[in-house]
Design a binder for these strands. Structure first.
Ligand SMILES: [Mn+2]
Ligand SMILES: [Mn+2]
Ligand SMILES: [Zn+2]
Ligand SMILES: [Zn+2]
Lengths: 157, 157
DNA sequence: CTCCTTAATGAAAATGGTTTCCATTATTAA
DNA sequence: TTAATAATGGAAACCATTTTCATTAAGGAG
């Protein structure tokens, strides 16, 4: 059984070490869970998934790690207005998967969509450029989210 | 001195009464402050502005009233990611003043902009229509915000 | 491998915006 | 005026997140 495989499970090690962060069990566990989970996990969601396999990783470490990951650009910190932050991997080993969000205010379901991304991205770039020039702003992030009721919640009167 | 003037100061009374809400001093005070203030006030900001003139309006009432106003569509509840909700009047007596936001993550300054609104709104409408059809969603709200560093914060290295 | 510096950690306590409770007050329809 | 009940304020509860601090463990130097 060959050692030292560098595909997949360890792709963030470089980014981590490059910024002077230590590689710890907790951090690997959290990234492991994030990369094998679909969707938008809260800190507690992650804690619950990590805990069975790594019972000595505390919730505090989850928060601290997510903060680091978010600063490194490895995860996005999302806010869907339900009072807790949610996180998703910015990109897997396979590359980026840019998308925006459609949030149901009835059941809190969140749909990733990428259908209109091309037009949106183009407009966003124009807008960012224009705003940046006009207001002397260095824009480095945007939030686009649609809120409404999904088919199920819409049916219920 | 004529009584019963209906311009300005009381334009929301109708909307209020129409929904079965009572008109109270606290509610009028809060709307008064909101309509004579620029910008994006937190509940506590409003409390501080209301308190000198109406010392017996509590913070709880501010929260409750803002919730009602937000449900009635009279104010927008905004989240700029600084851990507290902010509120702005949806429209004054003069009518709507649609705009989006540019948020400085350095100093939390928020700039209202309306420059690219037309194009944005058009794209939004298209997107809402497309998404609504594709995912069977009734979209009734969207959030567009740009985050970055303002000229001042950008200068500080 | 061992040592040593110090980054990282977990548990518990603190924080802080917002909500809930509940006894009291005030609005409004009759 | 009166009665029904919506609205209120103050205190306590809530709850996601952060801070504190004593302990642990990464990882570079030797
Ligand atoms: Mn997503
Ligand atoms: Mn605004
Ligand atoms: Zn739903
Ligand atoms: Zn700034």
């Amino acid at each position: 059984m060959p050692r030292g495989n560098c595909q997949g499970q360890g792709w963030w090690h470089g980014k981590f070490r490059g910024c002077g962060y230590r590689l710890t069990t907790g951090r690997e566990a959290i990234l492991d869970i994030l990369s094998r989970s679909e969707g938008h996990l809260s800190a507690e969601d992650i804690y619950i998934k990590v805990h069975p396999r790594y019972p000595n990783v505390g919730l505090t470490t989850i928060y601290r790690t997510l903060d680091v990951l978010s600063n490194l650009g490895i995860v996005y910190k999302l806010d869907f207005g339900d009072g807790r932050a949610r996180y998703e991997l910015a990109e897997g080993p396979k590359g980026a998967h840019h998308h925006h969000h459609l949030v149901c205010t009835g059941c809190n379901r969140v749909i990733d969509y990428a259908d209109f991304i091309d037009e949106e991205v183009e407009l966003l770039q124009q807008t960012e450029k224009g705003l940046g020039k006009k207001y002397n702003f260095r824009i480095n992030n945007h939030v686009i989210q649609f809120y409404g009721l999904c088919d199920k919640c819409n049916g219920k009167k």
